[in-house]
Design a binder for these strands. Structure first.
Length: 816
RNA sequence: GCGGACGUGGCGGAACUGGCAGACGCGGUAGCCUUAGGAGCUAUUGGGGAAACCCUUGGGGGUUCAAAUCCCUCCGUCCGCACCA
């Protein structure tokens, strides 16, 4: 027998919708709180990951509302993208129909969870009302020189038949279908995110409430490495080999240089020399070894001498030039100066091939027979005029000196590349560009936006963009000269859509611009953003980039879109991520059916803190359900079964509410402790411990007897977590107004004070006794009664205490 | 290799700025109630020991009256980046 969760949940979901309980209005007189979850891709069904993400957010939203904040808590759908296209091909329907159907299904499931969304702000990125503004933003970027087209070797997924951003290539494979990514030369649209690299890096410092992990991933990805480009002259030639180094302090120890096998100079310099054939053979061999093999860990570094020499510009020493596969053409200048004494890779290579070494930085323990490179700090030696300096300083001084004398140039290398946004796909935002034979690349005029996707296109699943096959779409007059022209048939990467949706939510129906500047000024930035760690780099980096772009346009005044970020952990089953292929999926809908949404919410919040992985546990669900029933039964003053069913013959406590004037002071103390704890815990997203203390309060009520006032407060405190149950109990207790509108309770510090406390008495740090004493006892008095304690006699053995430490309310430690 | 997070009962996990380790829950045990219990309630539950006691936060060392918490060192797990010069 259990509480009637089904009726209750349906009843209140309907009531909330009807009364528009969660619809937000900007109000300058009130403090705002913008809470946002990463919006879902409408696959049609919600999974446990969604449930966890959105439950965490929902508790925070309801809590903030009760605290009096003006809360914005919107929901929408990231609806463009390949899966809809693939599903359309498979099910012989159209992506649009498919997508909107999925959105409907998904909304039904979200509503069944009782989430407090402002559904009037719902948006879908596949609406032309939305993607019109993608196009608008693109054109603005084009005007600013931030969107450009170039032909380049791009990542190409054969299976998806589209290009991929660097960010979408994981270990050489397509992030979505895991097909090996190939390189292909194509004309593509790029966004100049690199223009913002300094700010994207610098402003990470503002993000004090972001997880360390995400900050470090972003830093890593942007990959700033300051250094020097040094020009090594080729011996007996005017040719120059530029190398890049971050360790200018080691340049006097550069005893050879290495070119990447693909370096354009290699073939030039070996021409006609005796080593030519051997070197060519080596290059051919290494080029065959694919990137994947090369990346397989601990491959032996292979290389070959070119027969040529270069001159180290700092000491005019001749150094041999080698070609080796451990130098990559893709990074820096494709050439390095090798310092075997202070770089482990160079060290291994030099050992292998008997190349010279020279120590230039003395570590604390300067080893004569090195068996590995010394990469730490130390004093410069063998470094000309820089001898005696600490290498950290020498690094700067040498760089400056090289810059002054023209030997080198201070430079910074970045890992971050411009963002490729062209996709050869149908289900995305058309790039608003027209190609005219006479005028060239022409932007679609703003007044002609949106460039709408045609209602239909042939989906064969064969190569090429489906848009290219829709004549009515492709053929269009040039906006400038009216000559027959062609539209761009590529669409935008869907990460474009999600890079600014948080701004659109502030004024989702605004018609004059992507967003209403005034509304955004009130609501933004997002106070709390919640989503999966898988978006730690891409989505968050792009969103930060867009935000800075809007700031430069003068449309917003802040630098960073998301003040606080929480990345929730994954939901696992049997230690593995839930997935179709593993067949270990637990469907949220079936849990809702059998136990109700409140049980699911409670379990998912209680089982683990939000950031850590959560192991699914059917028994945990039972436990959560049991607790809800336990709370429910308080209204009946704890009969074992709900009213209507036969009650147990032996009541646990009084069957009636306690008399008003007979409050139990101990219970009151627990209550106020709970208020304090739950408030702090929800504030800090520690829901598991918040729930634990609510359980303690419930246990205390069972012990002490039913107290209506205490119970009312428990119901309020519990309501963000189990809103349906609490709303019903609230009504049963005789309240008319929704519990969502109740003020969050405050604890009374006076009631927390305990008159008597039990403190531990330690002798030499070990607990030997406990005594109950008045909380505010003086140390003198305490000392007297402690030393009189019989239990301590054997431990003290009459020895006088050397030290007597008293931590009020906690313990006493006697040192003898 | 670099960067980040972490390591606590049979399990999920608590422990504020160093102050009684193991809150809360799951599971277990015993009892009550019941025609019945996979419901409910009560008690108990880190390990060893008959007990007094002893041991216990990955291992070792240190600081301290006092360490899961701080420092050093080693081991291990997870994540991100990666022949990045």
């Amino acid at each position: 027998m259990s509480y009637p969760f089904k009726e209750i949940e349906e009843k209140w979901q309907e009531a909330w919708t009807k009364s528009k309980s969660f619809n937000a209005r900007a109000d300058l007189k009130r403090k705002k709180y913008y809470l946002l979850e990463m919006f879902p891709y409408p696959s049609g069904k919600i999974h446990m990951g969604h449930v966890r993400n959105y439950t965490i957010a929902d508790v925070a939203a309801r809590f903030k509302i009760m605290q009096g904040f003006n809360v914005l808590h919107p929901m929408g759908f990231d609806a463009f993208g390949q899966p809809a296209e693939n599903a359309a091909i498979k099910n012989k329907t159209k992506p649009r129909i498919w997508a909107y159907k999925c959105i409907e299904w998904m909304k039904i499931e979200l509503k069944k969870m009782g989430f407090s969304y402002d559904w009037e702000r719902e948006l879908s990125t596949c609406d032309s009302d939305y993607y019109k503004w993608n196009q608008w933003i693109f054109l603005k970027m084009l005007e600013q020189g931030l969107a450009y087209k170039k032909s380049s070797s791009v990542n190409w997924c054969v299976a998806c038949e589209t290009t991929l951003a660097n960010e979408e290539v994981i270990e050489g494979e397509c992030w979505r279908c895991h097909t090996k990514v190939e390189q292909k030369d194509l004309e593509q649209w790029f966004l100049k995110i690199t223009e913002y690299k300094e700010r994207l890096l610098e402003d990470l410092k503002q993000l004090k409430d972001w997880p360390e992990r995400v900050l470090s991933m972003q830093t890593n990805w942007i990959g700033k490495s300051p250094g020097v480009q040094v020009d090594f002259k080729l011996k007996d030639s005017k040719k120059i080999i530029p190398v890049f180094t971050t360790r200018a302090d080691t340049i006097f120890g550069a005893t050879y240089i290495v070119l990447a096998p693909g370096h354009p100079l290699v073939k030039e310099i070996i021409k006609g020399n005796p080593e030519e054939k051997k070197v060519l053979r080596f290059i051919e061999k290494t080029s065959k070894a694919s990137k994947a093999i090369r990346e397989a860990t601990e491959v032996k570094k292979e290389g070959i001498f070119t027969g040529c020499f270069a001159v180290n510009p700092v000491n005019n020493e001749e150094v041999p030039i080698w070609v080796a596969d451990y130098v990559l053409m893709e990074y820096g200048s494709g050439a390095i100066m090798a310092v075997p004494t202070h770089d482990q890779r160079d060290f291994l290579f030099a050992k292998e091939h008997g190349l010279p070494m020279r120590i230039v930085i003395k570590g604390q323990d300067s080893a004569k027979d090195m068996n590995e490179a010394y990469e730490g700090d130390g004093i410069q030696v063998n470094s000309g005029q820089f001898n005696g300096l600490i290498n950290k300083e020498a690094k700067i001084r040498i760089a400056e000196w090289m810059q002054e004398t023209g030997i080198g140039k201070i430079e910074t290398h970045w890992r971050l590349r411009d963002w490729l946004i062209s996709r050869q796909r149908f289900w995305g935002t058309p790039i608003p560009i027209i190609y005219c034979a006479k005028c060239g690349i022409v932007a679609v005029p703003y007044e002609d936006l949106p460039v709408k996707l045609p209602p239909d296109a042939p989906f064969t699943g064969e190569g090429g963009s489906p848009l290219g096959k829709v004549k009515e779409f492709v053929n269009t007059p040039c906006p400038k000269c009216k000559a027959p022209s062609r539209r761009e048939t590529d669409t935008m990467a869907t990460f474009f859509d999600s890079s600014w949706y948080f701004l659109r939510f502030c004024s989702p129906k605004f018609e004059k611009a992507p967003f209403d500047v005034g509304e955004v000024k009130y609501w933004m930035p997002v106070d709390q953003y919640i989503g999966g760690i898988e978006h730690a780099i891409l989505h968050l980096l792009y969103s930060r980039f867009f935000t800075k772009f809007f700031k430069d346009l003068g449309m917003i005044e802040f630098d960073e879109p998301f003040k606080r970020l929480l990345t929730q952990g994954m939901v696992l089953k049997d230690g593995e991520v839930m997935s179709k292929s593993r067949g270990n999926i637990v469907d949220p809908d079936s849990i809702i059916k059998n136990y109700g949404a409140d049980t699911l919410r409670l379990f998912i919040l209680f089982a683990a803190p939000p950031e850590t992985e959560l192991e699914w546990d059917d028994r945990g669900i039972e436990g959560a359900f049991k607790f809800l029933n336990r709370v429910w039964r308080i209204q009946d003053n704890f009969p074992a079964m709900p009213s209507g069913v036969q009650a147990v013959s032996r009541p646990i406590a009084g069957k009636v509410w306690r008399e008003k004037d007979k409050a139990d002071p101990a219970l009151l103390r627990v209550l106020h402790k709970t208020i304090k704890k739950v408030t702090a815990d929800i504030e800090g997203f520690k829901f598991n411990t918040a729930i634990a203390s609510l359980m303690e309060l419930t246990n205390a009520i069972y012990q002490s007897g039913a107290d209506k006032k205490v119970f009312q407060t428990l119901v309020i405190l519990f309501s963000p977590i189990a809103p349906h149950l609490c709303e019903e109990l609230w009504q049963i207790l005789g309240n008319k107004e929704s519990i969502c509108k109740q003020k969050w309770p405050k604890y009374d510090p006076h009631l927390l004070v305990e008159e008597k406390v039990t403190i531990a008495i330690q002798v030499n740090g070990k607990v030997r006794s406990k005594i109950e004493i008045p909380a505010d006892i003086s140390e003198e008095k305490l000392k007297a009664s402690v030393l009189a304690d019989e239990k301590l006699k054997p431990w003290l053995q009459g020895r006088p205490p050397k030290n007597f430490i008293f931590v009020p309310r906690k313990l006493v430690n006697i040192v003898v």
